[in-house]
């Protein structure tokens, strides 16, 4: 019997997740609450069933996530009895760093990149799972499944370890760490198909609903709380929208959509002509910007 495409991907990911649990002393799963994290968590639960996950989950909270994301995160943690750590860059909070006042670049750097480094240093994690896929962005396409980071958490794209077969090099020195991407070979459509097939719970923000939005810099932004600071000329409208990716709400553009179920999302996706990261303001700051962020330690 031959395995189907999804079954092959599923087994490959489970193998990667088990390998980390076997070889690292203190791994953690970065849980971003998005659909890819949901799939990654689902695979991890399968990898170790009937045992509990042999590692903790970590959410780096920028304090600007959609409220529904935070609620979903806490619901999932209690439903599956997960050890969930939440880390916030308190230094950033003290200085009132935010995406509106300081721009996406500084906000992402302080509240996400720096916060992640703080958390990894604080808990001394030696391996961190991430839900990134190689089809998301051109520079991701070149990243290894086990991606080595030096003591400053930097990624050196020219100095990556060759990765042959499924023989991952898990050896690191003290203070160094590895980012592990079990979904490397999945595409966006694979992820949705798997969510559909496995009936995986995802944040309702992915589904279309009437939501209060404003138009700002070509992005449709949802008015999730008062901090969005709606200007007089910006009109709040209720529109049928959904989100293709989830991040900080003032940086994540909604798309107009009628897709209210996973099935409808898949149909929409197949007919759509815009790629997934399009809704994110941070990628287009400058050409090659994702690569720069990653070299600095962004996930």
């Amino acid at each position: 019997m031959n395995l189907t495409h999804l079954e092959k991907l599923e087994s490959e990911s489970i193998h990667i997740i088990r390998e980390v649990a076997s070889e690292f002393e203190n791994p953690v799963m970065l849980y971003s609450i998005g659909k890819d994290s949901a799939v990654m968590l689902h695979l991890a639960l399968k990898a170790f069933a009937p045992s509990k996950l042999p590692f903790k989950l970590l959410h780096v909270d920028t304090t600007w996530k959609f409220r529904e994301m935070i609620k979903f995160r806490d619901d999932i943690a209690s439903e599956y009895n997960l050890d969930l750590l939440v880390h916030i860059n308190e230094e950033g909070v003290k200085n009132n760093i935010g995406p509106i006042s300081h721009g996406s670049k500084l906000h992402t750097d302080v509240m996400k990149t720096q916060a992640l480094k703080q958390a990894l240093d604080k808990y001394k994690f030696d391996a961190a799972f991430g839900g990134a896929r190689r089809d998301e962005e051109k520079s991701r396409a070149k990243e290894r499944v086990f991606s080595f980071r030096d003591q400053q958490h930097h990624w050196d794209p020219k100095n990556q370890r060759p990765e042959l077969w499924n023989l991952y090099n898990t050896k690191i020195a003290k203070g160094e760490n590895v980012r592990v991407f079990p979904l490397s070979n999945w595409t966006e459509i694979d992820v949705w198909q798997y969510i559909y097939q496995e009936k995986i719970n995802i944040v309702p923000l992915y589904f279309a609903k009437e939501r209060p939005v404003i138009k700002r810099d070509d992005l449709l932004l949802m008015v999730d709380d008062k901090r969005l600071d709606v200007k007089d000329h910006e009109k709040i409208e209720n529109r049928m929208v959904r989100f293709r990716t989830l991040g900080c709400y003032p940086l994540t553009g909604a798309i107009e959509s009628k897709a209210k179920s996973v099935e409808e999302i898949i149909i929409e996706l197949l007919e759509s002509k815009n790629s997934e990261r399009e809704g994110r303001a941070i990628d287009k700051d400058q050409i090659g910007s994702m690569e720069k962020k990653k070299q600095e330690g962004y996930f």
Binding site: R134, A141, K142, P157, K158, Q160, P162, S184, N185
Partner: peptide, 10 residues
């Protein structure tokens, strides 16, 4: 091109 990159199409 300086490294191994993975691409997907169907």
């Amino acid at each position: 091109t300086i490294d191994v990159a993975y691409r997907f199409f169907e």
